[in-house]
């Protein structure tokens, strides 16, 4: 249940940002979550709503965008979706694949009143 720790970090970032901007209420938190992170969106929403109760962010919606797992092949130069967690270039078979996306865990922006 590491979603609890992740929810706490999201709440900390949200409260810091809200305090700096003088917001009265946070209505929506936009998150980018990579496909190769181990965050279960429903568990995260549940943890967040429990933690945010009574704060400026109480009732805020977590809007989650899942970012696909994409690799760049250093040998053939292509960019490919990584399927079934096979980190070999789907075009040339090379193992020299670097991740370009799919590991994000990021607060993108807040909607505030």
């Amino acid at each position: 249940m590491h979603e609890m720790a992740i929810a706490q970090s999201i709440l900390d970032i949200t409260m810091d940002t809200a305090a700096r901007s003088g917001a009265k209420k946070v209505t929506c938190i936009k998150l980018l979550i990579g496909q190769m992170t181990q965050v279960e969106p429903e568990a995260l929403r549940f943890c967040f709503s429990a933690m945010a109760a009574g704060s400026l962010a109480a009732g805020a919606e977590l809007e989650i965008t899942i970012v696909p797992l994409v690799g760049h092949c250093r040998d053939c130069g292509g960019e490919y979706l990584i399927e079934n967690f096979r980190f070999l270039c789907s075009a040339c078979g090379s193992a020299a694949l670097e991740l370009i996306s799919g590991r994000e865990l990021r607060v993108e922006y807040l909607e505030v009143d």
């Binding site: 999201i10 970032i13 940002t17 865990l105 990021r106 607060v107 922006y109 807040l110």
Partner: peptide, 9 residues
């Protein structure tokens, strides 16, 4: 109002 954050969780 929208506030950009762009912070890693």
């Amino acid at each position: 109002m929208q506030i950009e954050v762009m912070t890693n969780i």
